[in-house]
Simulated scan of single mutants.
Amino acid sequence: MRERSLASLVGTAVGDAYGERLHLERRRRELSDPWRWTDDTEMACSVFHVLDTHGHLDPDALAASFVAHYDIGRGYGPGVDAMMRRVEEGASLRELAARSFDGTGSWGNGGAMRAAPLGAWFTGDPARAATEADAAARVTHTHPEGVAGAVAVAVAAAVPPAELFDAVLAHTPPGEVRDGVRRAADLPDAAPEDAAKALGIGRRLSAPDTVPLALWVVARHPDDYEAAIRTVAPLAHDVDTLCAIVGGVIAGRVGVDGIPHGWLRATEPLPSWV
């Protein structure tokens, strides 16, 4: 499923870059060409790279790739930036992640934002996608909700649209993420603004207030990349991450040809090491 995973990675990057550009426009910041992607894509590249070289998600290899390719200019959160400074001093990234937030781990959306290419790699095997996503998330996010967010996105990317909510609910562990996905499944005909109000828009940068809306939009536009991105972007607070998740899940299904060509051309290419 390498081709689907790579398409998902490209879809993640384009969605991420589209969302980041909108974020900059909202804050009247200087815009650059090409559209630049953020840490969401950089970390997703490591996920793809490890799968491509190992055939499965090796947590130690993923941690090493995160460290090797860390670029502070990509807009990482303060938690990751702080951990990377400690890693430079000889600490272990995985151990730091487990000790973060007084040992509870991060429940942020960082595990979810990079999970779509992993799910696409294991298309047709949602149980395997869930297991591998759990391992991938724990490299930086060990809180149960942070892990659950990654699992939910990976499973969504691994199954056909008609099976999305049933599969995600079957494989996502109980908690706030799963409860949010259940609410999303119960809102098939809601207006986007009402869905956003009920599900969250990423304002807390957490998995529970990011993943449910992303999957609601995917279910609403399962095979239409542009419509999905244009639906979620105006609603989102954490706009680059929501667009990255939505774009990654849908692109794994529709392929690179399903992404608007103008957006593809405008987005900076993936790094050469991918």
Score class of each variant (00 low, 15 high):
V232H: 11
D39A: 12
E30I: 13
V50I: 06
K197Q: 06
P192R: 09
E176R: 13
G19E: 05
A7W: 07
G262W: 07
R27W: 11
D194K: 10
H143N: 15
P34N: 08
T267E: 05
V218E: 00
F122C: 00
I201A: 12
A116C: 10
P271Q: 10
A191I: 02
A127I: 04
Y76D: 03
L22C: 04
I250D: 04
D71E: 14
Y76W: 03
I72E: 15
V256C: 00
L93K: 07
H54S: 10
D189W: 00
R21S: 00
M1L: 12
A191T: 05
G149R: 03
P160V: 11
D39I: 07
G77E: 06
R99C: 03
F101L: 14
P144Q: 09
T12M: 10
P260F: 09
A91W: 02
P260C: 13
D223V: 11
V47M: 07
F122Y: 11
G175Y: 05
D71H: 08
A167F: 11
A207E: 06
A156V: 00
N109Q: 07
D238R: 03
V67N: 04
R128G: 03
V246Y: 01
V256M: 07
G108D: 12
D58V: 08
F66Q: 01
P144M: 09
H54R: 15
W216H: 11
L164S: 12
P161D: 14
A167Q: 12
S92P: 02
M113F: 02
A266R: 15
D238C: 13
E145S: 05
A120L: 07
T38H: 07
A130F: 10
A150W: 06
L169W: 11
A116T: 07
G55C: 05
G19N: 02
G255C: 11
F122P: 06
L215P: 08
V139M: 13
S8G: 10
G15R: 04
L22K: 08
T38A: 01
T12V: 15
T210S: 15
F101T: 09
V159E: 02
A228G: 12
S206F: 04
G200D: 06
M113N: 00
A244T: 03
G149F: 01
L22Y: 02
L22V: 08
T231V: 05
D238K: 13
W37E: 05
H23R: 14
D102R: 08
P117E: 01
V254T: 15
A184D: 12
P161L: 06
V155R: 02
E20C: 08
V87S: 00
L96C: 01
E145A: 01
A156G: 06
R138N: 03
S8F: 04
G146N: 06
R183W: 07
